[in-house]
Amino acid sequence: MFGIGTYPRGGRLFVAALAVACCGFGNTGTADADTFIPLPGGIITRELADGTTITIRIDEESAKVSPSLGSTPVHRNVWVSGVGSVDLAGPSADTATIKISPGYVVGCQMDISSLGVNENAGESNTLSQTAPYITPSLSESFGGGITLAPGQAVARLMLDLEKPDDYGMESHKRYNKVPGPHASVTWVDEAFEVNGCGGYAQARSFVLAEIDTTTFIGNLALWGQPFTMG
């Protein structure tokens, strides 16, 4: 279940920002039946050249993990909750547009704590339907089920917003686009399944933000703390 919030418009940004916050790499629980895992969320703030700041937060984050009803070792059920928000402040905040996209990366028998945004990405990067500036080797899951083999990781994007395109055809967006200076997305008990991973499985949240103005496109990403699914 999702909630999307906005506040009054905020301002123009004149330079790009690209950054990653890794909010801890420790394991936070084990995947016993209905294991509840409170998570610390996180915050990242970057200041632009004109004094405008971009802040991304993950708040009220938690996960609940359980094995399958048949206790199959290659299957887990996950329910996740959290609030992702993006805020602009300062002289350029009123005319910018914010694109916000929350999600989770899930890995099987690999360390996903080092996954992050491509540091070489430039201003031409955009938050498209497939959020291309996540680590390029990640495939993406658009449904409720994720199938993984050992050594694989998948980005599970949370939003799927349906709207007509310019020709009246159905289109799907993996982000919410709102005028600045604030955008937020809330998810409560959002469920997905992990199949095929007979070994150690791990997940971590992320919130991606793209700031669009008439002069540039800038990207910022916040990563949550990894948690184990057993």
Score class of each variant (00 low, 15 high):
Met1Cys: 14
Phe2Asn: 02
Ile4Phe: 02
Thr6Asn: 09
Gly10Thr: 12
Ala16Leu: 09
Ala16Thr: 07
Ala17Asp: 10
Gly24His: 04
Gly24Trp: 01
Ala31Phe: 02
Asp32Lys: 01
Ala33Thr: 14
Ile37Gln: 10
Pro38Ala: 07
Pro40Ser: 04
Gly41Thr: 02
Glu47Cys: 04
Leu48Gln: 03
Leu48Cys: 11
Ala49Ser: 13
Gly51Met: 06
Gly51Tyr: 12
Thr52Asn: 01
Ile54Met: 01
Thr55Met: 09
Thr55Pro: 06
Ile56Tyr: 07
Arg57Tyr: 07
Ile58Asp: 06
Glu60Thr: 09
Glu60Asp: 11
Glu61Ser: 08
Ala63Gln: 05
Lys64Gln: 09
Val65Gln: 05
Pro67Ala: 08
Ser68Gly: 15
Ser68Gln: 08
Thr72Cys: 15
Val74Gln: 13
Arg76Leu: 12
Arg76Asp: 13
Val78Met: 11
Val78Thr: 07
Val78Asp: 03
Trp79Gly: 11
Val80Lys: 08
Val83Thr: 07
Ser85Met: 04
Asp87Ile: 01
Ala89Gln: 15
Ala93Gln: 05
Ala93Ile: 03
Thr97Ile: 06
Thr97Leu: 13
Lys99Tyr: 03
Ser101Cys: 14
Val105Glu: 04
Gly107Lys: 02
Gln109Ala: 11
Asp111Met: 15
Ile112Val: 12
Val117Glu: 10
Asn118Phe: 07
Asn118Tyr: 06
Asn118His: 05
Asn120Pro: 15
Ala121Arg: 06
Gly122Cys: 08
Gly122Trp: 09
Gly122Lys: 09
Glu123Arg: 06
Glu123His: 02
Asn125Thr: 14
Thr126Cys: 08
Gln129Lys: 05
Ala131Cys: 14
Tyr133Met: 01
Tyr133Asp: 01
Pro136Ile: 13
Leu138Asp: 05
Gly144Asp: 11
Ile146Met: 04
Leu148Phe: 02
Pro150His: 09
Gly151Asp: 15
Ala153Asp: 09
Ala153Lys: 01
Ala155His: 00
Lys163Ser: 06
Lys163Val: 11
Pro164Ile: 03
Asp166Asn: 08
Tyr167Leu: 03
Glu170Trp: 01
Tyr175Cys: 03
Asn176Ile: 05
Pro179Gly: 14
Gly180Met: 00
Pro181Ala: 12
His182Glu: 15
Val185Leu: 13
Val188Pro: 01
Gly196Cys: 07
Ala203Arg: 04
Ala203Gly: 15
Arg204Phe: 06
Val207Gln: 00
Thr213His: 15
Leu220Arg: 05
Gly224Asp: 03
Gly224Gln: 00
Gly224Glu: 00
Gly224Asn: 10
Gln225Val: 06
Pro226Gln: 03
Pro226Asp: 09
Phe227Leu: 05
Phe227Arg: 03
Gly230Lys: 08
Gly230Met: 10
